[in-house]
Nucleic acid binder design. Structure first.
Lengths: 127, 127
DNA sequence: TCAAGAATAAGAATCGTTCCTAAAAATCAA
DNA sequence: TTGATTTTTAGGAACGATTCTTATTCTTGA
């Protein structure tokens, strides 16, 4: 646990449920450790994703987002404003049948798209 | 329907079920129209995605893939070799419950990850 | 205490993709 | 048909996100 990794961990904590991009994590981490480099943030985030401490969320036409909440849950992306919302795992059911038996399924990523309440009311916000 | 779009359409037909990247479509399109430019391929693909003639498949850590088969089906990505396999729609079931009613769900993308038969037998191939 | 390995800062390089510009082609109006 | 307007294109520069390189700074432990 280096000071840099600690800064990334703290940044993710500070980000709360906002599903920040690497760039945002970098900005937050700098408050804890002003000398930290963007590359270091990317490297630590990637390692943490690999080790399962953090989840990487792929976004169409945008930078990856990161989630320190590794409890089982999935995400909905608002196509209006780009915000990502959480959905508890037990509210999502995915079933795939008739998969050839020599193919080993590893896992599913479900990304739902939505218009959030704000965007429905006030029209698409940026992005 | 310009000659360039025709070349892209033919390239996609040539690609069959291989879920090609834009770069691959470009290579195939060149056989039909050697002077076509990469930017033109990207532009035509994007238009066709927008108009619903073609499906864009997002891949973690890699270039987008394109699928001229717009029948309802989903995809599994082999994390060993990067190949994408089709799953018929009626073999996939996704359900999301307890979505706040002021949030309007648009659609789901399910990307499953697997180890395909080849990679299970012969170990991870590249990528 | 020193050597060997791991992690870092800084910025260059890379990759996939989009944008820009000038030229060519298609469309339309009279 | 002719000219004007619009659309599309080729080619390559530019871009954003991410990874890589290099030289330097920590760790670690014999």
């Amino acid at each position: 646990m280096t000071a840099q990794k600690m800064a990334v961990v703290n940044a993710l904590r500070d980000a709360g449920r906002t599903h920040p991009t690497a760039e945002t994590v970098y900005a937050l981490a700098k408050r804890h450790l002003p000398t930290i480099a963007l590359g270091t943030v990317y490297r630590n985030l990637s390692k943490m994703v690999e080790s399962g401490e953090v989840v990487r969320i792929l976004v169409p036409d945008g930078a990856d987002r990161f989630d320190a909440d590794i409890s089982d849950h999935m995400h909905i992306l608002c196509i209006g404003c780009g915000k990502i919302y959480d959905i508890e795992e037990n509210n999502v059911k995915v079933e795939i049948s008739n998969v050839p038996e020599d193919v080993q399924l590893i896992r599913f990523d479900v990304m739902a798209k939505c218009l959030c309440a704000d965007c429905k009311q006030h029209g698409l916000n940026k992005k």
